[in-house]
């Protein structure tokens, strides 16, 4: 038996909006520690890892570990029927073939339940080792989204370079080229507006902008984003989900053929 009550139901709606275009089908894993998902996009270039910790739910009951295969397009259709202020409860029976999403309006005068069929998904679970990153950049998520969107009108790939001077995003295409440099700044009034660069070693990596743009659909979840990079390794683009967890996107770099 599984019963997870999330008072801020809009978070789940936003999570689905953030990943449904990248991943079609995925297993949601439920354990004592939380509600999580790990899935690759269909071309196996990017990986998304979501964690909603059990202590972030108002009520969290998970009698035994459960993996529920869901079509994210269908799940998103159902969650769109929840109001933004609604409390969402996810319910499932052990070994059942469906999951129920219950939506309660804040004043409790409207209660809906939507039952969705589960599916068998054969997916490999990847072990992600803890890594010391050469450079970690924390910046406003809206700024990162703006840069990715702007640069994708010029080119298909972006070179992200972190040095002591700042973080540089560069692209080039048929019509020309562009560079955007963000320097470290400290905002006294608002930590969310800060760009903070922690660098052990300069690092420069090339990525497909199409994927980064897809990741920025998570911008509504957090005011800040963290980019963690090491030489020749995937970048981690992380959005914290207030008080409850995170969504991390891993993207493999492009290399010289």
């Amino acid at each position: 038996m599984l019963e997870l009550r999330l008072v801020q139901g809009s978070l789940l709606k936003k999570v689905l909006d953030a990943i449904k275009d990248l991943v079609t089908d995925a297993n949601f894993d439920c354990s004592e520690s939380g509600f999580s998902l790990q899935a690759m996009d269909s071309s196996h270039v990017a990986l998304v890892a979501l964690l909603l910790r059990s202590d972030g739910f108002e009520h969290y009951r998970c009698d035994r570990n459960l993996s529920m295969g869901m079509n994210l397009t269908n799940m998103s259709k159902m969650l769109k029927c929840a109001g933004n202020d609604d409390i969402i409860t996810i319910k499932a029976d052990d070994g059942g073939d469906s999951v129920t999403f219950m939506f309660e309006s804040p004043s409790q005068d409207k209660v809906s339940d939507f039952e969705m069929k589960l599916m068998d998904i054969d997916s490999e679970h990847l072990g992600i080792p803890e890594t010391e990153y050469h450079a970690i950049v924390k910046m406003p998520s809206a700024e990162f989204a703006r840069i990715c969107r702007d640069l994708s009108t010029i080119g298909d790939t972006v070179v992200i370079s972190v040095s002591k001077d700042g973080v540089k995003f560069s692209t080039s295409g048929d019509i020309g080229s562009a560079n955007v440099v963000c320097r470290q700044n400290n905002s006294v009034d608002n930590k969310d507006n800060e760009t903070v660069i922690e660098m052990n070693e300069p690092v420069s990596l090339t990525f497909a902008l199409r994927y980064l743009n897809s990741f920025t659909k998570a911008t509504t979840l957090s005011n800040t984003v963290t980019l963690s990079m090491s030489k020749e390794l995937p970048v981690v683009v992380e959005y914290k989900i207030a008080e409850i967890g995170h969504i991390r996107f891993y993207l493999a770099p492009k290399i010289e053929d």
Partner: peptide
């Protein structure tokens, strides 16, 4: 030309 690597090559299958 740059080649796109697969993400699975970086992480072990569990």
């Amino acid at each position: 030309k740059r080649g796109q690597q697969s993400i699975s090559k970086f992480f072990r299958t569990q």
